[in-house]
Amino acid sequence: MNPTNYLYVSALLFTIGAIGVVMRRNAIVVFMCIELMLNAANLSFVTFARINGNLDGQVVAFFTMVVAACEVVVGLAIIVTIYRSRRSASVDDASLLKR
């Protein structure tokens, strides 16, 4: 099978993730959409590693996973901190700088 098909799936998942980041209001769901985008990018890396016949793409995907794990840990800690002070996980409520 032509590996390019995986790239189409990757592009679709990335786009869906981007829509989610813009449209959803719950901070945790926004975060999950970011994870979806990172995963879509990883699929591209793995596919290109296969197309080019070397493992560098897989190593980069591995690094992406580690960075995503760090991002999740810190991001969720921030969400919990915001929730603790505002009793809300909606991104619309955290707009103190605007007012």
């Binding site: 590996p3 995986y6 799936v9 945790i28 975060f31 999950m32 994870e35 995963n39 990883n42 699929l43 793995v46 596919t47 590693a49 296969r50 897989q58 995907a61 591995f62 996973m65 995503a68 794990a69 999740v72 840990v73 969720l76």
Partner: peptide, 27 residues
Amino acid sequence: FFYIAQGALFLGIVQVVVYTGAVMMLF
């Protein structure tokens, strides 16, 4: 599944362990 099908055996396993295991559990 896609990773393993594309010859990235290690990444496929890590995907299950790290993402569906740890990250989603954290979520």
